[in-house]
Nucleic acid binder design. Structure first.
Length: 582
RNA sequence: CGGGGCGUAGCUCAGCUUGGCUAGAGCGUCUGGUUUGGGACCAGAAGGUCGCAGGUUCAAAUCCUGUCGCCCCGACCA
């Protein structure tokens, strides 16, 4: 492609409403333009990258045995009502009524396609002989994000690869799951992304039922912990800590239990300020309803409870924070003054709680707290549990290492669904004994445009983007410095034609502009291999070759430069492919 | 949905506190000339519903009310 014939609106300055690198660079390099909050046009350059990512995803999905199909973005709302997800999605589900003849049709724009695919496959998969099967599509998804943000990272409309597997057994499910997991590793490696597969909250099946693929990035909205010593990585909702149950013994320096007046101080922050004690000295007492029964959960004041862990520790089906009435019943006090001493419900404590000597807690009466609260004397515990969010510095649950906290961008998610949708939509098959069973499903998603955005977010320098060869909109950029010089243009045109003939994606900057101007644009859009043809070099019979990520350029004789370029590209591709897990 | 910020030329912003002349600058665009290996220089030109609506006033980019949009923090995110 010739620069003058395509559309690459680069910008020298950062638009004021872009704050993070990917957003700024994608705008400046002319990859995207915003239409409204959460909706972006992909300009020619950006779209080329998206399509390259898409091609890799498609290639690897097919390699892993998944079959491509294409489902409508428009979906009847009834399907979401049957699975209960109209309510579950709430306002996030874009849905509306349209007039059709004399009636109204209620439609949704698919936020994902579990309903549609389960409905489809349920109608046509009748026998265990047809299973397992895995289908996928690459489609635009719609979600009415409460708050779109981070440029192109979180939008209301986005390109997603979603795959769905159907099988007769957990073994079949696990087999596809592992294959998809492996395909994801190959995809993200081929795309040149540094990624981390992390354990994610797994829902109904439990165990190893869900992994997210994260790209570590400062601006990622997800927080994950990982252990640099072993491979353990998990998102914050899921992450276990390697802490052990605490010994529950009265400390020798335990002070006496005292009641102090704390009028209107109901939060950890207010009490710590009023009593001049550190939040870590306090015990947060959260009253939950676990399957309807009140339960006090004790967490150190500066920590954050993890409800999933609480639910698992209690083996409870449902868990929710208790209502005001329940809190009054078990504490005899208004909300904000709960404490373990004398509370009228069972107590569950985090590992770190008994270690607090002379803790501050609510006194279970209005406007009062206790000081000098000590485990084993003022409240009784049998043992302790891992009930809080993991944080940096916690011991690793798998080895002797120490957990680190990093932010990440979720680019992929694999999930063992089980029978939730097949049961709701009556998608069943007949087994060898002519018995009916719901299909056992898995779902596997990749944010295709997030792959591109993640690269923009993580691969750049002060001059602009630095694309990996596999995702770069063009592999080679030819820059004839002086387009009015016939000698330069003869060489440039020859290179351009030869590279195109060799099937290489080549862009030629044929604009009549100054050298510095073209170099700045070249750096900004980040094409991996730059070929500069200028008067100086030509006098010596040479052109200049430079990788975007290299500081220095190399020279090549005019006649053999194209062969060198082809060789450099081939070597680099081989290098990138060598990293892909077999 | 709570909190904060912003809306003036294609982009970045000044002007607003304390209302008053023809609403400015840099970059970009166009024309002519000089330049030509890291965002050139000179001369000239075009480009504005000051987000929108209403109000106050002799007079509103500026003050008031409402409204829309965008960004950020939080809540939310199968």
């Amino acid at each position: 492609m010739r620069w003058s014939k395509t559309f690459i609106p680069t910008m020298k300055e950062n638009p004021s409403d872009a704050e993070i690198p990917s957003h700024q660079l994608m705008l400046r390099a002319g990859l995207i333009r915003q239409l409204m909050a959460g909706a972006y046009t992909y300009l020619p350059l950006g779209w080329r990258s998206v399509r390259k990512a898409e091609a890799i995803v498609r290639d690897e999905m097919e390699r892993a045995g998944a079959i491509e199909l294409f489902m409508p973005a428009l979906q009847p709302i009834d399907l979401f009502e049957k699975t209960g997800r109209k309510a579950a999605f709430g306002k996030v589900l874009i849905n509306f009524q349209v007039q059709r003849g004399d009636r109204l049709v209620h439609l949704a724009l698919g936020p994902t396609h579990e309903e549609v695919v389960t409905d489809l496959m349920g109608r046509h998969l009748n026998s265990y002989r047809q299973l397992p099967i895995c289908v996928f599509q690459i489609q635009t998804k719609f979600r009415n994000e409460e708050r779109p943000r981070f440029g192109v990272l979180r939008t209301s409309e986005f390109l997603m690869k979603d795959a769905y597997s159907f099988g007769t057994s957990l073994e079949q499910l696990n087999e596809v799951y592992d294959r998809m997991y492996h395909a994801y590793c190959r995809i993200f490696t081929r795309c040149g992304l540094k990624y981390l597969p992390v354990e994610a909250e797994s829902g109904p099946i439990g165990g190893d039922a869900s992994h997210e693929f994260m790209v570590p990035a400062n601006n990622g909205e997800d927080r994950i912990v990982h252990c640099p010593k072993c491979s353990y990585a998990a998102n914050l909702e899921r992450a276990d800590t390697g802490r052990k149950p605490a010994s529950i013994a009265l400390a020798p320096n335990a002070a006496a239990l005292e009641t102090v007046s704390t009028p209107n101080a109901t939060s950890i922050e207010q009490v710590s300020r009023m009593l001049k004690c550190a939040p870590a000295q306090m015990i947060k007492t959260l009253i939950y309803l676990a399957d309807g029964r009140a339960m006090a959960v004790l967490i150190r004041g500066d920590h954050e409870a993890n409800e999933a862990k609480v639910r698992r520790a209690l083996k409870a089906g449902t868990l929710q924070l208790a209502d005001e009435k329940t809190i009054r019943q078990v504490t005899d006090a208004p909300v904000g003054f709960a404490g373990p001493v004398g509370i009228k419900c069972p107590i569950l404590a985090d590992h770190d709680v008994p270690a607090i000597v002379n803790a501050v807690t609510g006194a279970n009466q209005a406007d009062a707290h206790f000081t000098g609260v000590n485990a084993g004397r003022d409240y009784k515990l049998e043992t302790t549990y891992d009930l809080r969010m993991a944080q940096a510095g916690d011991p690793c649950p798998k080895c002797q290492g120490t957990l680190e906290l990093v932010h990440g961008i979720e680019v992929g998610h694999v999930f063992k669904l089980g029978t939730k949708y097949s049961v709701a939509l009556g998608a069943e098959y007949l087994d060898e004994k002519e018995q009916r069973h719901p299909l056992i499903m898995g779902c596997y998603g990749i944010g295709v445009n997030r792959i591109v955005a993640s690269l923009a977010e993580t691969c750049f320098d002060e001059d602009g983007l630095i694309w990996p060869l596999a995702i770069a909109p063009y592999e080679v950029l030819i820059i004839p410095l002086n387009v009015t010089d016939p000698e330069t243009m003869v060489v440039a045109e020859k290179y351009y034609a030869e590279l195109q003939a060799a099937g290489i994606d080549v862009l030629m900057d044929d604009r009549d502009a100054r050298a510095g101007f073209k170099f700045k644009d070249a750096d900004l859009i980040g094409i991996p291999l730059r070929v500069v043809i200028g008067g100086k070099g030509l006098k010596e019979g040479q052109v200049e070759l430079r990788w975007r990520w290299d500081q220095t350029a190399s020279k090549a004789p005019v006649d053999s430069a194209i062969a060198t370029v082809k060789q450099m590209l081939a070597d680099r591709k081989a290098e990138e492919i060598a990293k892909v897990p077999a």
